[in-house]
């Protein structure tokens, strides 16, 4: 896999079928429904529990807004990911181009997915900071790899976003 910035896009090329499939799973992985721990993390309370009035208003007015915000981000990412659904040989490597204007949506969707997966599998701090864990021997290992792979993409987008925010020509 190669990742680089080309003008106003991030280009991820030489994506093998396995990594392409992990990318395709971002929108589904970001969905916390059916995983109470993930729901609790994504929609965490706005106070330390003492301010019940604020919490009640939050549930009523803010949470639906947050749901819409997160959903819009995953929908944008899902649309970008359609580039990976070509008709060519399914074992061929793919290329994905992320427009700079979608960078925030990608950061959000990747973060949602990482948080949901981590909550679902109750990963420990130690597991999350073990970047060199291998090989993948279980569904849990695969999910941890997924969290780290998405984190790597986030880091790259963040680095490039810094360049974009400073103006054209910087960074990259």
């Amino acid at each position: 896999m190669e990742i680089c910035r080309r003008n106003d896009e991030i280009e991820i090329s030489e994506l093998d079928p396995f990594l392409a499939e992990l990318l395709r799973q971002i929108p589904a992985s970001a969905n916390p429904e059916g995983v109470p721990a993930a729901e609790e993390r994504i929609f965490s309370p706005p106070t330390n529990g003492k301010e019940t009035e604020i919490c009640a208003e939050w549930k009523l007015y803010v949470e639906p807004e947050l749901r819409r915000l997160f959903q819009t981000a995953t929908q944008t990412v899902a649309a970008d990911l359609e580039q990976l659904n070509g008709n060519e040989n399914k074992f061929a490597n793919r290329t994905l181009r992320i427009p700079s204007k979608h960078a925030d949506a990608w950061l959000s969707a990747l973060n949602q997915a990482r948080l949901v997966i981590a909550a679902k599998y109750h990963f420990t701090d130690g597991e999350l900071s073990d970047q060199f864990r291998s090989p993948i021997g279980s569904r849990r290992d695969l999910s941890l790899f997924q969290v780290n792979f998405y984190g790597f993409l986030q880091e790259f987008i963040l680095r490039e976003l810094g360049g974009w925010e400073q103006g054209p020509g910087s960074g990259g």
Binding site: P45, N48, E51, L69, Q112
Partner: peptide, 19 residues
Amino acid sequence: GELYVQQLHGYLLLATLEK
């Protein structure tokens, strides 16, 4: 403060408003 907490939650950070 409520507005800030709302923004931080929009970025998926664990944030609370406290007295």
